[in-house]
């Protein structure tokens, strides 16, 4: 053994077998199908978000007099600023889309079932943190949508019984939108949510490792070897996926770069106002019901999905063999799609 490896062996007391065991997680063959390895996409995009986010944060200045100008500066004056900003924005969009697809595949393959219930709940935490990250992200630009989005969101929080007033004040750093609000949103966006997500991602992946991915068998899955090693096989696939994603993101950044709407005007709400596409459902919901009803029902639906694996277990214990859970999933997807399309098609 060389002196150098001797040096590290002594300072990092990990045995060879342990190292091999840590990296050579056997991955079942079905994970070669992209549909099943979707979870890697948001994980990769998260790294892109951190990288581009740190770059953006080196010019961004929170505050109502500075935010809009600093984003304009990034977009129009800094070398490659438009590219970094567009990458950040498109990764956010893809990340939300990737998480939704990943969650759909977990749902419809029943991969959340015993003993993996807790990992589904951790995944819901990741989904919610990403959505909060997305919302606080576009609030930072201080364009019209940023301002009115933050105003509406704080009042959505306010509609929650008991806790609401406190949540609203904490989110806005005061009773209403004020000069400290953007700093608060920036901290949530660039520190709190990324920190939560790093912790949740760690737990999520640790749980996947502890349980192993759920196994599925396909008729064309013949051959004696049912597993392939994580390192290097799966890692290489992920790296290739990552490169393809970078090409797609860069193309989008070129063709549809992040632009800027008119600056926030606290005295005039634009006559037509829409949030990001992933909030269309919630936005339409708010138009359909009075505030408290809308907010409480949304809360209940989120809770139902948070505890879904247990609800599903209960259903399957009461009616063994029924496909009710799949039915509920299909209805939920159709409702979400329907409300999103509805919101996308009309002005008001």
């Amino acid at each position: 053994m060389s002196r150098r490896s001797e040096f590290f062996r002594e300072r990092i007391p990990v045995r060879d077998e342990t190292l091999r065991e840590l990296t050579n997680e056997p991955v079942p063959n079905h994970m070669k199908r992209w549909w099943f390895a979707l979870g890697g996409t948001p994980a990769y995009l998260f790294l892109v978000m951190i990288g581009t986010g740190i770059l953006l944060a080196s010019y961004y200045q929170p505050g109502p007099t500075t935010a809009y100008q600093s984003v304009r500066f990034i977009t129009e004056e800094v070398a490659f600023g438009w590219y970094i900003r567009s990458l950040h924005k498109w990764s956010a969009t893809f990340m939300v889309a990737g998480i939704i697809l990943h969650q759909l595949r977990v749902f419809f393959t029943g991969a959340y079932r015993r003993p993996r219930e807790l990992n589904w709940m951790i995944g819901m935490g990741l989904l919610l943190s990403t959505l909060i990250g997305g919302f606080t992200g576009y609030s930072l630009v201080y364009e019209q949508l940023s301002f009115w989005g933050a105003t509406v969101a704080s009042n959505v929080a306010d509609a929650i019984p008991f806790l609401g007033g406190f949540l609203k004040k904490t989110l806005l750093a005061g009773d209403s939108y004020n000069p400290h609000t953007l700093s608060r949103l920036f901290v949530i966006h660039a520190a709190l949510m990324p920190a939560c997500m790093v912790a949740l991602l760690f737990l999520h992946i640790a749980m996947v490792r502890l349980h192993g991915v759920s196994e599925l068998h396909f008729p064309d899955d013949t051959g004696a070897k049912r597993y392939f090693p994580f390192v290097p096989d799966h890692l290489f696939s992920e790296i290739i996926m990552g490169l393809v994603l970078m090409i797609v993101l860069s193309t989008l950044a070129l063709v549809l770069p992040a632009s800027m709407g008119p600056m926030a005007d606290p005295l005039t709400t634009p006559e037509v106002i829409k949030p990001e596409w992933y909030f269309y459902v919630a936005f339409r919901w708010l138009k359909l019901f009075p505030a408290t009803v809308a907010v409480l029902s949304m809360g209940c639906i989120v809770f139902l999905f948070l505890f879904w694996p247990f609800v599903d277990g209960w259903i399957r214990r009461r009616r063994p063999g029924s496909e009710l859970s799949v039915g509920i999933g299909i209805v939920a997807v159709l409702c979400i799609l329907g409300l999103t399309v509805w919101e996308a098609l009309v002005a008001h």
């Binding site: 105003t151 509406v152 704080s154 009042n155 209403s176 005039t268 709400t269 006559e271 106002i273």
Partner: peptide, 8 residues
């Protein structure tokens, strides 16, 4: 009074 936007 709903969610704080400005009415026209």
């Amino acid at each position: 009074p709903h969610m704080g936007c400005q009415v026209l």
